[in-house]
Each structure stands twice: as C-alpha cells, then as structure tokens.
Write a protein that binds this DNA or RNA. Structure first.
Lengths: 242, 242
DNA sequence: TCAATAGTGTCTTTGAGACACTATCCG
DNA sequence: CGGATAGTGTCTCAAAGACACTATTGA
C-alpha cells in the first residue's frame, strides 16, 4: 500500500515536473484566433504548440500563467481562468510532466508578440485553420479550451473580454456568433443585451455607409447584479482525460 | 527570463510534489455527507482532512484518484471528476505541494470504510456539521467542491450517482433539495423528471403507510439523448485561487 | 430615391412556477 | 371513514424565438 501524504518525507519520492500552459484567445477580423509557438527543439521539433513553461517554486499557478502570458504577448491584466490539469504519464517523452492549463482572453486591440528564445515563431491562428497537428496532447487541450469557452459564453459576460474598449452591439453579436458557431436573431439579441443592462453608452458614434452605429462600453462594477445570458439549451462542459 | 519548456533539462529545476485529493460525497439519512480522515502526524496533527496522496510516476491523475478512493472506501467504478488544481506556494508547510482535487460521488448503499495506516480515523460528516477547521486549505477545497456539485446538479443527471440502484421520484427530489438547499415543488418535479425520460419503471412498489411508491431505476445508455435539468436561473461556477 | 446598415415592435410558443386536485393505501 | 403518503392537472406569467417593421445615413 502506498504511503499517504501524512508522513511525507520530501526526498523520498520521485517528483514530476509541473508546467503551466496558457491557451490564449483573441478576436481578429471577426474570427476567433489562438496563439501558438513553433518549437525549435526535440521533441516535436518544428511543431506548433500552446505556449507554456515550468512553474517556479515561489509563485502560485495563476502567477505562473500570467508570467507566461506576459512573456509571450506582453499583455497583463487580462481575463485568465484555470481550465484543466493534464497528467497522462507519457504525454511528454522526456519525463513525467503534469500540465495545468489556463485559458486567457485578450482584447482585440492588443497584439504585440514576442518570439521567445526557444521558439522559432509565434503566431495567431484562426481556430478553424490550425497548422496541422500540435505538439504533445495540445490538440486535445485546445479542443477542451474551445468547449469551455463556448459553454461559458452562454451564461457569463466573458465575450466582452475579447472586445476592444468601445464597440457596437452588432459587433458583440458577431462575437457570440463566431464562438457559438451559429446565427443569432438581431432583434432578440438587442433585447437581451438591453435588458441585461451591462452596457454603457459612450456617447460616441461610428459613421459608415449606412446609419451610424452607437458605441458602448462594458459596464464594470455592476455590483452584485449577477446576470445570466442564455442562448441555447445545450450545455455540456464535462471534461474527460484521454 | 525563465527558460521555457522547450529546452528542458530534467535535472535542472527543483520540482514540486504533486498529490491528488478526493472529495468523496455520499448521501446518508437524507443528508449530504463528505468523507474525512483524521491526521496522525505533523502538520495539522489531529485535524480532519480530505483524503489524498502522492501520485505515482506511472499512473494518470484519474488513476491516482481512483486508487486513493479505493484505499479509503474500497469503492470502485463510481463517478469521479476533476475539480480544480491548487498550488499556492505555502499551502503545505513541508514543501511545495500542488494538489489536483477530484470529486467522487458514492452511492448511498455502499459504505465500508478502511482506516488507512497513517490516519487515526476515517468518518463521514454531514456537510452542514463539519468538525471545525480542516487541515491545509481543505476548507476552501471543500467549499469549491460543494459549489461545483450544486451547479452541476442543475444541468446534469449527477444526482442519480448518489442514489441506490432503485429509488422513488420523491427520494430523487429529496436529493435535489438536500444539495440545492431549497424546497422544490412536487408537481413541477414530477413533470420535469417524466418529461426528461431518464427513468425506467422497475415494476417494483414499496409499501408504507400511505399509497405505495413506484420505484424506478436510472435509464443508462440513453444514447445521445443529452438532456438538461434546470431548477433555477443562477449559475456561477467560476473558481478563484485564494 | 435607393442601397446599406442600425435598431424596434409585436405575435406566438414554450416552459417554469404556484397550487389545487385526485389516487391508493392502512387502520 | 379519516389520516397519510403518492401522484396529476391546470392556470398564469415571463422569457425565447421568428420575423416584419421603422430609422438614419451616403451616394
């Protein structure tokens, strides 16, 4: 029988490595994109992968994720949430690596990338056109991240994280459509958003070919006014390790 | 700048320990209970804690969770799902320990416990009457587990995992009430359950003081007939690391 | 005035909740 | 019969969806 955590002698067991991987989403030209890095070394040399790295002994998991995120994109203070922890024994051929995956949502108007020392490239890819198979089990991490994103869109204000500071209601609608992969009724969308009272008129207008657009910003600090978006019935966000 | 995962030299970094903790729920005398073990050694000697242990290098996280579960309860083949990963640097005074927490639901009719070598006791506690403060950050792990359980009850068939093989509709209603902490309307409950077509009449009846009860079993293999329970509007299951 | 885009009103259907009613047993 | 428990029917109200309508601009 295995000894349990209660009489632990720190030096006694072999320890796995622990990494944090961050699936970073953004919206570009009205399409959902994900940030990938191209690996320079074995294993999966040349393959694209989800950015990540080892945790330091003195930081929390979330701090590690924010550090990775900033190293790749220079972005701070964005939405970040823990996704799932992947720990299949052979997922990394070098050694036992347990990876705590996070999702980050980066606003559409921020996009400076930094190629890290050990990658040959960093790029945004539309989620519908990925560059072949990803390294390690990153295909399934990404798939699970997308599921979670879709599922959370339906009952939170997550979508706002992807928009620039100021936007129109139809742009917001378009994000929902992008991510949910389905058309939404314009009238019903207007109604729902207005009823939810999560938007603040900026007084700005944007002129174009037709009638000018009213621009809003997201109303932060709505206090406890918790609110629920709901666009469809289905909701499945159980996650199974493969 | 930290080196990233791509040029990893296995021996180069200090590694954290990784444990799996399993929050095990069951239903006893119509009340939700959780399994706790009493610690024999430093730290938190004498405190109650969520059962858990170190992962082996050759097992998946889920296998480790199932192993722990079986060591404590002798139970196999129960519902198990990953909850969240806790990794604050000082959560364990001995060394850096990252803990992947799971939730397990154990059917009401199975209850043999095994006191592990390193605990002085193992016991079921009603979630409403816990034995003071738990060890480590286990209070917050348990709180998050309860939130998740409540939230998932509202749109999945999770509740069935807590029932014995055969049960009545009113017993099912009572589980929902226990976990959601609120009364449900009998008529509406009947309607919803019937409409959902997740039950199978066993042909059995149970006699008591009044009209006999029809007994059902959960209809497994409903194919793709995914279905949604929904009892209230609210749904918040975001999790923040403290 | 027309094309183009933004935004509103309204009817129908669905489903949740409240609650009163009926059913079947024991004594 | 009456008390006890199981189970059903039905009314109301609110929200979701479909879809037709109006509004405001530039060319």
């Amino acid at each position: 029988m295995t000894e349990n955590a209660q009489t632990y002698d720190a030096s006694k067991y072999e320890r796995p490595s622990v990494t944090v991987d961050v699936v970073i989403f953004t919206l570009q030209t009205n399409e959902l994109h994900v940030l990938l890095v191209q690996r320079k070394n074995w294993p999966y040399e040349g393959c694209w992968a989800i950015p990540g790295g080892f945790i330091n002994m003195d930081e929390t998991l979330e701090q590690a994720a924010r550090r990775e995120l900033e190293e790749e994109t220079g972005v701070r203070d964005v939405y970040l949430e823990q996704l799932y922890t992947f720990g299949a024994p052979q997922r990394d051929p070098r050694t036992r690596v347990i990876s705590v995956a996070y999702i980050a949502l980066v606003s559409a108007d921020i996009q400076q990338l930094r190629v890290s020392d050990e990658s040959t490239a960093v790029r945004w890819f539309p989620v519908s056109r990925l560059p072949g198979q990803l390294a390690f089990d990153h295909d399934s991490i990404l798939a699970i991240a997308l599921d979670r994103l879709r599922s959370k869109m339906e009952y939170t204000t997550l979508a706002f994280q992807l928009l620039p500071e100021v936007f129109s209601i139809l742009e917001l609608k378009s994000i929902y459509e992008q991510i949910l992969g389905e058309e939404l009724d314009k009238g019903n969308f207007y109604r729902k958003i207005k009823d939810a009272r999560v938007l603040e008129d900026t007084g700005l207008r944007r002129e174009g070919r037709g009638r000018p657009t009213v621009l809003y910003r997201f109303r932060r600090n709505r206090g406890e006014e918790q609110f629920v978006f709901r666009w469809r019935e289905s909701r499945v966000d159980a996650v199974e390790e493969s």
